[in-house]
């Protein structure tokens, strides 16, 4: 069976959940081969990357030590994938290359597409066994299906696109020595400040997201308290971010994160098209807004016309009580 390359999404060797979703999708298309570009020391051992991805069906794990390329942007990783793809093609064939649909992942896919003359589909929310990818476009107003028609399909896949399924893979380690051109080392990460852990679920991975907008008036406490009562991630509209109330990493929408949780609770958010773009595909939508004409109410499964500063704390109290 042909290989399917899956680029592992990780932070310093800590594998992130989208990796397992990609491996699950990869199994539909062929034989999953995970690609680890990171500190080689984190590849092995009981807690290592190999052990993790094996549990989700990785038959092979290409380990590429990033000592030489750490600190450079995108371009070296595209060269690594190009070289692994060439090897896989020579071996038993290559069915597809799956990459997490992060900003970096999309740019790696973009460079790779030109390098290996293959079509690229970005932001897929599903991929079938015959390579048909589903995308959600125009602020979630349209669903589009499409296919790569040239070369090896390169598909970037959004978080939450599949429920990770465990299945034992061989996890055969292939140490891969990539050759990186000087040209690829021209953009450098000069400094990096890891995002502070909030203690809450990751916004794009959370089952529940509770968001606040301009209507919070800058006081996010009621939003955060409700989020904590529900075990949810906290989100924000651009208006809240632009006002400096929340960091940009919390922004939901066209120029922030796209979320598709089981439950999205919008508080003091009007529901502009650019905000909808980031949350419209949520399974259940709830809004609290004091203006009954707010467009967000067109989307909701349940809405409360009221002041979030009174509704949220009271609801939080009741939820906490029910949970005991």
């Amino acid at each position: 069976m042909s290989e399917v390359l899956v680029l592992i999404d990780h932070v310093d060797g800590a594998v992130r959940k989208p990796t397992y979703e990609l491996l699950t999708i990869a199994k539909r298309l062929g034989e999953p081969s995970a690609v680890f570009i990171g500190p080689a020391a984190r590849a092995g051992g009981a807690d290592g990357v190999t052990e993790k991805v094996k549990q989700y069906g990785a038959e092979k794990v290409y380990v590429v030590d990033d000592a030489q390329i750490k600190g450079y942007l995108v371009a070296p990783k595209a060269e690594v994938l190009q070289q692994i793809a060439a090897q896989a093609l020579g071996n038993g064939g290559l069915a597809a290359i799956l990459i997490p649909s992060s900003a970096e992942g999309k740019e790696i896919g973009a460079r790779l597409a030109i390098k290996i003359e293959s079509g690229l589909i970005t932001d897929a929310v599903d991929v079938t066994a015959d390579g048909v990818a589903t995308q959600s476009v125009f602020a979630g107003n349209f669903t589009l299906t499409g296919k790569v028609t040239k070369g090896t399909p390169i598909i970037t896949v959004k978080p939450n696109s599949a429920a990770p399924e465990e299945s034992a893979g061989a996890g055969a380690v292939v140490e891969f020595a990539a050759t990186i051109s000087d040209a690829a080392k021209k953009a450098q990460i000069v400094a990096s400040q890891p995002r502070q852990a909030t203690g809450r679920p990751e916004l794009t991975e959370a089952a529940i997201v509770v968001s606040g907008g301009r209507g919070t008036g800058g006081n996010f406490e009621p939003v955060e308290a409700l989020a904590d009562a529900l075990g949810a991630a906290v989100g924000a509209s651009r208006a809240a971010v632009d006002s400096g109330w929340m960091p940009h990493s919390f922004q939901v929408g066209q120029t922030g994160k796209t979320v598709s949780p089981q439950l999205y609770v919008a508080n003091g958010i009007s529901g502009a098209i650019q905000h909808r773009a980031g949350m419209q595909t949520s399974k259940t939508i709830v809004a609290v807004n004091k203006d009954e004409e707010a467009p967000i109410f067109e989307l909701v499964d349940f809405g409360v016309v009221g002041d979030l500063h009174t509704v949220l704390p009271a609801a939080t109290e009741q939820i906490v009580k029910r949970k005991g």
Binding site: N141, L144, V300, F302
Partner: peptide, 30 residues
């Protein structure tokens, strides 16, 4: 190098239940 096979408008979300908060009724309903 890619082809779009189909484009479908997402069915509009069916309007849900909307309640007005009066003396704390909103929180309870929520």
């Amino acid at each position: 190098w890619t082809t779009v096979e189909d484009t479908t408008a997402r069915p509009p979300r069916t309007a849900g239940e909307i309640v007005k908060d009066e003396d704390g009724s909103g929180a309870t309903a929520l």
